[in-house]
Structure formats: C-alpha cells, structure tokens
Amino acid sequence: MVKEPWGEDYASKCTKNDWLEGGHNELNQKVQKLQSQIALLSETIRLQKRGLSNILKSKKCHLKQIIQKYEVLDLEKPYIRKSQKPYLPQPLTLCMESPPENDFRHCDILKAIEQIVPRAFEKKQVSKIQFENMNVICGTAGRENRWWITASDFQIRNLLLHSGFQINGEHFPLHRHDDIVVEDYKVHLRKTLSKKKILDTLSVLSSIL
C-alpha cells in the first residue's frame, strides 16, 4: 500500500514545523516587548535628565541674575557706615555730599551758609559744621564725602534745606540727616537680602546635585 504524501509522516513534519515556527514567533514577540520596555525606560531616563538639566540651567541663570544685581548694588554704594549703636534722630541736621576731589574746608561751608543766613554762627543759628571722609570710614574710594550742618531751629534748617549751597560757582543740594541714615539702612537691607537669596539658591542647587 502506497502512503499518501499527506500521511502520518507528513502530518508529523508539518506539526513539528508549525510548533517551531510558533515558538520562534513567541520568542520574537517577547524580544520585541522587552526592547519596547527598554526603549521606554531609556526615554524616561533621558527626559528626567533633560528635566534636571533644565532645572539646573534655570537655577544657574537665576543665580547669575542675583549676582549681577548684587554687583550693581556694590557699584552704587560699595559699603555703608557700620555702627553698633542705633542712630538717634537728628531732625535739625542737614547733609551736603560732595565728590572727594572737591577739597572743601570748613570756611568754605561757613561762607556758603552765611550767603543764606548772615552771621549764622555769631547768632548761634548754626551750631555745628562737621566733615566726614566717607572713603576713610568705609574703606572705599570714589565715594562722596559728607558735610553735616546743624541748625538751631526748623526755620533756619528749612531755609538752608530749600536753598542749598553755592560753592565756587557750583550748586550743592542739602538733605535731611535722618533721610540719609534711612537710605543707608535701606542699602544695608538690600545687600543683606541679596546675600540671603544667593545662599538660598546655592542651597537649592546643592540639594539637587
């Protein structure tokens, strides 16, 4: 009896081939699934790194801006006068600021006062003229020096305040003592807050790293 080509041997062969092919397809599916998982994990890591990089760039940029502001602040007023004691209000005292190259003397200030209030010292309408070399006090260079003028009453103070001084053909405005002190304190606060922001930003960066 002749065996048909589609007999048991052929069926066995087909079944074996089908099984091998099926196993191969299953393996391919598992490999593809694993490759997909690896790709997803790689993309997640890449995005996380990119996110961290963006955070670091943002923080560094923010820090750079703070430092630039701090440097500008230092250029505006490098240092202020420091005192262990709080300043007492001096409402009758005025301040004239002048560049250090203006080598004024007490007699120059007195002459400017007497152009507004004749014989001011003789009449005790002005009680004190005091010079402060701000560059020596603050350890800087190029800062304006200060002349402090104390009047006897508010009438004389206001007269001097609104007039200002004319010295060697140049006009110098006067400012209230208390306003000058408050402005110095504001600069001190701004510098302190700038330092705090720098330290806070550095702290954030160090925690990220």
Results as ranks from 00 to 15, higher is better:
112 A>Y: 01
63 L>I: 07
171 H>E: 09
165 F>I: 01
58 S>N: 03
161 L>D: 02
10 Y>T: 10
23 G>C: 14
17 N>E: 01
83 S>W: 03
19 W>D: 02
137 I>L: 13
45 I>H: 01
151 A>S: 13
207 S>Q: 12
173 P>K: 02
44 T>K: 11
95 C>T: 13
180 I>V: 12
1 M>L: 03
62 H>N: 10
32 Q>V: 07
19 W>L: 03
9 D>Y: 14
23 G>K: 15
25 N>G: 00
49 K>H: 11
191 K>V: 03
95 C>V: 15
76 E>C: 14
67 I>K: 11
111 K>C: 08
26 E>C: 10
105 R>F: 08
106 H>E: 14
64 K>D: 06
102 N>S: 06
108 D>L: 02
156 I>S: 04
70 Y>T: 15
188 H>I: 01
180 I>W: 04
189 L>Q: 10
1 M>G: 07
100 P>S: 06
153 D>H: 12
60 K>I: 04
2 V>Q: 10
16 K>W: 01
37 Q>L: 13
188 H>D: 02
8 E>R: 10
101 E>P: 00
42 S>T: 02
164 G>C: 00
204 V>W: 02
48 Q>P: 00
121 F>P: 04
88 L>P: 05
75 L>D: 09
125 Q>A: 03
35 Q>W: 05
82 K>R: 10
127 S>C: 14
105 R>H: 11
197 K>P: 05
192 T>I: 00
157 R>L: 09
68 Q>I: 13
84 Q>D: 15
16 K>Y: 05
159 L>D: 01
206 S>I: 12
51 G>T: 08
121 F>L: 14
31 V>K: 09
43 E>W: 15
133 N>D: 15
103 D>N: 14
54 N>I: 08
98 S>M: 05
105 R>S: 08
64 K>C: 09
149 I>S: 01
79 Y>P: 00
173 P>W: 07
24 H>W: 13
19 W>E: 05
59 K>L: 15
70 Y>H: 15
71 E>W: 11
53 S>C: 08
63 L>G: 04
53 S>F: 07
108 D>I: 01
130 Q>H: 09
15 T>R: 14
144 E>L: 06
111 K>P: 00
114 E>I: 02
112 A>C: 00
137 I>G: 06
159 L>E: 09
121 F>Y: 08
141 A>N: 02
200 D>N: 11
165 F>Q: 00
113 I>T: 05
52 L>M: 12
